[in-house]
Amino acid sequence: MNYASWPVRVGAALVDAIPAVILSGIGYLIAGPTADDPSIGPLYYVFALLSLVYTVFNRWYLGGQGASLGKKALGVRLIKEQTGQPLGFGGAFVRDICHIVDTIICYIGYLFPLWDAKRQTLADKITGSLVVKA
């Protein structure tokens, strides 16, 4: 199997994150805590909600079907290790939750693909997922 390299995985994650960060940033700039006009405060929540909707759609829906926007852009797919099929919405959601493990050990779990034979993070190992070249 042709596993995705660590730099490609990082690139895909960055491409996935950019729209969510931009939406959140716009909301913060327009209606952040320093806004003098309380009537624009709800705009912050609108942009935060848009960022959340984008994340759910991109990471869990599209990702669960095999490729988020970032993965598509970099030519990789997210699959189940045992079947080679996409994870599905729930599997992609659980995988993202399992990334907490990658994070709580000083982000070392995200570096596992640098030395792991299947280039898996700890979250990938927990959920039985692989990121492979499309």
Score class of each variant (00 low, 15 high):
V15D: 06
D16E: 12
D16S: 12
I18D: 13
A20T: 13
L23I: 09
L23E: 04
G25W: 08
I26R: 05
I26G: 05
G27Q: 03
Y28G: 13
L29P: 01
I30G: 03
G32D: 07
P33I: 09
A35E: 09
D36C: 01
D36L: 14
D36T: 15
P38C: 11
P38T: 11
I40L: 07
G41M: 12
P42M: 07
P42H: 10
L43P: 00
L43I: 14
Y44R: 14
Y44Q: 11
Y45P: 00
V46N: 01
V46R: 07
F47D: 00
A48W: 05
A48L: 12
L49C: 08
L49I: 12
L49K: 01
L50Q: 00
S51C: 05
Y54P: 00
Y54D: 04
V56S: 04
N58W: 05
R59I: 10
R59G: 00
R59T: 09
W60Y: 13
G63N: 02
G64R: 05
G64N: 07
G64D: 01
L69S: 06
L69W: 11
G70L: 10
K72I: 07
A73E: 03
L74G: 01
L74Y: 01
L74A: 04
V76P: 00
R77K: 15
L78R: 06
L78I: 15
I79T: 05
